[in-house]
């Protein structure tokens, strides 16, 4: 078994609080990149990076066109652009039309994350009032990635987690406060297992 190589997260309404909680549980030396699509108003600027950066130990930034993806960094999709991942593990951006009414779209990020990371992905769906991400979750599950979904009962808006759960057999459904600690546990365990086998 290969260790995981990236975490991708999708969130929408209520997402800023939920993301803050997840990220706050992670240490500065978290060994994977974390790539996030949070739906925002198209003209909002980079305030989300500041908010999230102030809530956790990790370096949080907006993803730049062609930027190389590094571990231990949290990347946010810029407002009004789709964020895509290239096979050489760098970002590209697109102003392609909105997918499920959203730009950036979680589905676009998740689908292209597969091109770069294949099954070595952990995908997380948090609170949100639409069904963006469910198609991406389905595809990541099909190739063998790991899916965590916020328990709809603990979500400020439950449509997005519900749609993800309906679209595929997800691996874990957790209340929001457990997602960060569980993510850390999962990643550390995968690295331990990998070392034992090699």
């Amino acid at each position: 078994m290969n260790p995981f190589e990236a975490v991708v997260i999708g969130s929408s309404a209520g997402g800023i609080k939920a993301l803050s909680m997840v990220l706050a549980a992670l240490p500065r030396e978290f060994p994977l990149p974390i790539i996030i699509v949070q739906h925002l108003h198209p003209h909002s600027d980079s305030y989300l990076a500041h908010i999230l950066g102030s809530k956790c130990e990790l370096n949080v930034k907006q993803a730049d066109e062609k930027e190389t993806i590094n571990k231990g960094v949290v990347y946010l999709a810029p407002p009004n652009y789709h964020l895509l991942i290239e096979e050489d593990r760098s970002f590209s951006l697109s102003i392609d039309k909105p997918v499920t009414y959203a730009r950036p779209s979680v589905d676009v990020l998740f689908e292209t994350a597969i091109y770069a990371y294949q099954d070595k992905l952990i995908a997380i769906i948090l609170t949100g009032a639409n069904n963006d991400g469910s198609q991406g979750v389905k595809k990541i599950k099909q190739i063998g990635g790991y899916i965590i979904v916020q328990d709809p009962a603990t979500a400020e808006a439950d449509a997005m987690p519900k749609a993800a759960i309906a679209a595929s057999k997800v691996d874990s459904i957790l209340p929001i406060e457990q997602i960060g600690p569980y993510l850390l546990h999962l990643v550390n365990r995968s690295i331990r297992l990998y070392r034992q086998c090699h």
Binding site: L84, S92, D96, T112, Y115
Partner: peptide, 11 residues
């Protein structure tokens, strides 16, 4: 061209 966008469109 950037591959990811092309690939997604082709699929």
């Amino acid at each position: 061209y950037s591959k990811a966008s092309i690939k997604r469109r082709v699929f």
